[in-house]
Structure formats: C-alpha cells, structure tokens
Design a binder for these strands. Structure first.
Lengths: 172, 172
DNA sequence: TTAATTTTGGTTGTGCGCAATTCAATTGTG
DNA sequence: CACAATTGAATTGCGCACAACCAAAATTAA
C-alpha cells in the first residue's frame, strides 16, 4: 500500500474528498500551521534552559553533533542538521567567539573547515546533560505519542525533500 | 488517565525508563529536532508556491486570517497566530507596502490598529485557492497521519504554553 | 479628579534561515 | 599541461522570531 506512487493517490483522495476553498484556506484546518506553531513554541521553551548554557537552540544542535563527533566539516554538519553554510558559518563564528569551538582547515583540502571542540566546549556537555530531561517535562504527553510525532515529522521531512527535487508540472 | 498531573507521571516515566546522558543528547533521539527540521522543510516547500503570490509563509498566514475575518486588531491577530507585535508590525507594514492590507486606527481606542484587506488583498484569495492542494501533494502521506500530526502538534503547543506560565522550581 | 496600573502597539537589537552570488581550491578531461 | 567543471565555504540581503524596552491611551483605584 504505502509503496505505491503516493502523489497520485493523494491527488485522487483530494479530488474525491474535495474540500471547499474556504475550508482549505481556513487556518484551523492547516496542519502546516500547527507544525509551524509547535516548532516555534518548542524553540521558545528551550530558551530559558539554554540561557544557562549561553546557547541558542540552533547552537545547541551544533553542539549536540560535536559532542557526538568531532573533526567534521561544515558540509557534513549541514547535512546532519538540514542547514546550509549561510546559516552555519556565522553561527559557528559565534560559537568560536564564545570559546566553545575551533574552526580549523583541512590539510588535504584547504577549502574544508574542520570543526572541533575546545575544552570549554567539551565541558559544557556536563551542564547540558540535564536539558533533555527538563525539556521532556515541559513537553509532557505519553512517550508513545512523542515517538509517533517524531516518526511523522521524519517521514514528512523526507517526503518534502523528495518533492523538492522532482518539482511540479510548471517546471517542465 | 489523561486528566492526572501529567508532569509528575512523566517524571516517573523518565526515572524508571532512564536513558543515558549520551542517549538523551544524541541528535537521532531528539523529537524536538525532528519537529524543528520538519517545520523548516515545510516553510521551504511553501516558498515556490507562495512566490507566485509574492508572499512569505508568515505573510500567507496573516492573509489566511484576514480572508476569514477583517477588522481585527494586531493583538487578536497575534493571539491567533501565536506571534507578537515585534514580528507582526513590520510584517503588516510590508503587506501594506504591497497594497494588500490597510492598517487603520480604531475610533474608540486610538491605540488599536484595525486591519483590513484592500481589493487587491481580497482578490489574492482566488490565486491562493490552489495552494492548499498543491502543498497537500508535496507533503504526501495518509490523511489520517496528517490528522494525527496536527493533533499532537496542537496538544504539544498547548502543553508548552502551559509550562511557560508555571515555570520550574528555579523560579521559586 | 488625580494617580497607579493595564493594555496596545511600536522600536531596537540579536540571531537565525535561506536564496543568490562569489571565490578559491580541487578534480576531471583532453 | 591547460582549462572547464565541480565543490566547500563565505558573503550579502531580506524577512522573520523574539526579548527587552518604550510611549500613548484607556481603565481602575484611591
């Protein structure tokens, strides 16, 4: 079932179960708005926790990656976080200015920035260790619900990336 | 079940099913990161559709509200969209500059801005009417899944707003 | 009625997010 | 080797998000 061409089936569903224009343009019916608002609220909720680490949420994400694996470059980091160099370069400079990260150069390829933690950056992991639990309390809900949320978000991201590469008829 | 003090139960779950610090700080395990990435991808996917209307996604959200109901003020709009005046004021000025929206003043209360559509703003609704369907195709997935996604996002937003008002022990 | 408080919106400053562009380093090809 | 194409990162410019702060108007209290 789920292996058939999804878009075609979706189209047919939208045609058979056709909602009026007013219904479709109604804010209350918009999944994307719920996703957008929940994501904003999530970043907002992280703020007081991350203020104690002097990190923003995107900076925290970069630190999560570097606590797992050092010596990676900006491209790899961007692939993991789904962010590009226009976002990461200034962010990494800020982390460097705070003394948490070093931005070296690869010897094999002079273009490549090699990212690593300073001792202070590594130490910050201890302070960060309580953040997930505190955030978990704020979010609430059943573990199974959150697992389902993660699964649908991951699936949606994947699908959106796929439809970004193979665009609409107007491009042909 | 769902009416009991949620945080307490969540705490106990976190204690009994305790994950290691490394597991908790692992990017792969972070629901919030999935939510954040999916929301970013969603805004990105809207962009080519909304470019045809010369709107950004937040601007589109404001237009959705105004297509439903005119004559509202900035506060009410912000309550509906979960955005504050720092975000909305410049955004509304841009919509005004595009000739889509008027920012009048209430006669009863000189502070309140009364937002309304220009004829061009109202007409844009016709052009926007195909956006939901096109976006629905990009997102893919079963209708039931998206309904579930919306429900969990709405619930999460509500919970995060609640825990923002009644903060942690460190504030006492 | 004055004084204190609340409400509404605006301003400023910081940090993303991303499209578009640029640039230098590397790789591929004849 | 020359030279075109590719790649990794940086830069520029715009539009959010939001905290912090401010001013004016309205409401309430004294």
């Amino acid at each position: 079932m789920t292996t058939t061409q999804s878009n075609v089936r979706v189209n047919s569903v939208d045609i058979t179960k056709h909602a009026s224009t007013d219904d479709a343009l109604c804010l209350e019916n918009q999944v994307c708005f719920s996703l957008y608002s929940a994501a904003n609220a999530m970043v907002r909720a992280y703020r007081p926790l991350l203020d104690k680490l002097d990190l923003t949420y995107p900076q925290y994400l970069v630190m999560l990656v570097l606590w797992e694996e050092q010596g990676i470059n900006v491209k790899t980091l961007g692939d993991k976080l789904f962010l590009d160099s226009g976002t990461l370069t200034p962010l990494l400079k800020r982390l460097e200015a705070k003394g948490l990260v070093t931005r070296g150069r690869s010897e094999q390829d002079e273009r490549v920035r090699v990212l690593a933690l300073t001792p202070a950056g590594f130490t910050l992991k201890t302070l960060a260790s309580e953040v997930p639990h505190l955030m978990r309390c704020k979010v609430g809900g059943e573990a199974s619900e959150l697992k389902a949320l993660k699964a649908i978000c991951d699936q949606t991201l994947k699908q959106l990336q796929a439809s970004a590469d193979a665009p609409t008829a107007s491009d042909i």
